[in-house]
């Protein structure tokens, strides 16, 4: 089995929603919002923008950065928990808008851990997809504002979420001598006994037991990371960057502390985009990678946790 990461892409809608704007609607202060979440602002899409619109924009950004035409894709995965209808999910529309008419397009309707699961599955599928068609594009896209605005604003959730999309290109072999990230190992897990703790259904309100989510995430994210690092004999201190689901700044700091690494090792942009659910990890990866023209030095770790509960980690190393 071999799988390589060739690049990332991202898209966020232009409208900035500040803490001051939300605070006025929630009878809270901007300082309370930032203290509870670390978030200063987030992006919310307009009414006409769909999850597929966000996904296609991130996909095009990823393909452009990687220098790959969409015709080279053998599979598309779209992670999203905020699609507006049951079926078909956004993957079919995204594939069609990328000009694909036979490549399988798979929805991963898992919310926050969706793009991490997509990356782990792409790693395992890369060889067979390459043999039958081409590369795999993993996308995470969310319009969380549609969930937030569908019912009276709840201060516990409205302050957290934002809209956006991220993407990653995975293939079974390196595209060029410019270097790529080799996907080394993945650990993905689910414990469905907690499935009611964070949930949403179309037409309903987002429901979250924040105590349970933070309690479980604060254990399971470091545990999954430690699982892949131990299996590969890599110390946490050797990791160049941890590119994690951007749930909450306080949670990210806690993960760093548990792993025994400095907070600077954990890339954050939750301050500017809020929690964009399945999109956040790949948006973070795209921003982190944009400042680094070549892979390395040192391995990188992806990790996420979300509704289900689903969680996991993926280790990649410069090839």
């Amino acid at each position: 089995m071999s799988a390589y990461l060739h690049g990332f892409g991202a898209h966020v809608p232009p409208r900035v929603v500040t803490n001051a704007e939300l605070a006025a609607r929630l009878d809270r202060t901007p300082e309370w919002i930032e203290g509870a979440s670390g978030i200063r602002e987030r992006r919310w899409a307009d009414a006409e923008t769909s999850v597929a619109d966000l996904a296609v924009a991130a996909a095009e950004d990823c393909l452009a950065r990687a220098g790959v035409n969409a015709s080279a894709l053998g599979m598309v995965m779209v992670a999203s928990g905020s699609g507006s209808r049951g079926f078909p999910g956004p993957a079919a529309e995204v594939a069609a808008r990328l000009g694909l008419s036979t490549a399988p397009a798979i929805d991963v309707p898992m919310a926050s851990a969706g793009s991490l699961f997509g990356l782990a599955l792409a790693m395992r599928l890369a060889d067979s997809v390459q043999a039958s068609g081409g590369d795999i594009l993993v996308i995470g896209a969310e319009k969380m504002s549609a969930l937030i605005e569908a019912s009276p604003l709840d201060a516990n959730t409205a302050i957290l979420f934002g809209d956006g999309a991220g993407a990653a290109l995975v293939s079974a072999r390196p595209h060029s001598t410019a270097g790529a990230w080799r996907l080394v190992d993945a650990a993905i897990h689910t414990d469905g006994q907690f499935r009611e703790e964070l949930r949403w259904s179309p037409g309903g309100a987002l429901a979250m037991n924040g105590l349970s989510v933070i309690l479980q995430a604060s254990r399971k994210i470091p545990a999954a990371i430690s699982e892949v690092l131990a299996r590969q004999g890599v110390a946490a201190g050797e990791v160049a960057a941890f590119l994690l689901h951007q749930a909450n700044l306080n949670l990210l700091a806690r993960v760093a502390k548990t792993l025994g690494v400095g907070p600077e090792k954990v890339f954050t942009n939750v301050e500017r985009y809020g929690n964009t659910s399945s999109a956040s990890m790949l948006i973070a990866a795209a921003e982190w990678a944009a400042a680094r023209p070549a892979p390395g030095p040192g391995p990188i770790v992806f990790a996420a946790f979300g509704a289900g509960f689903h969680w996991g980690a993926v280790l990649a190393a410069p090839d």
């Binding site: 924040g210 105590l211 604060s218 306080n250 806690r254």
Partner: peptide, 13 residues
């Protein structure tokens, strides 16, 4: 302990 505000979600872990 939570409804009283003594502890929050990050104090629980």
């Amino acid at each position: 302990l939570f409804e009283s505000g003594l502890l929050d979600s990050f104090a629980l872990p």
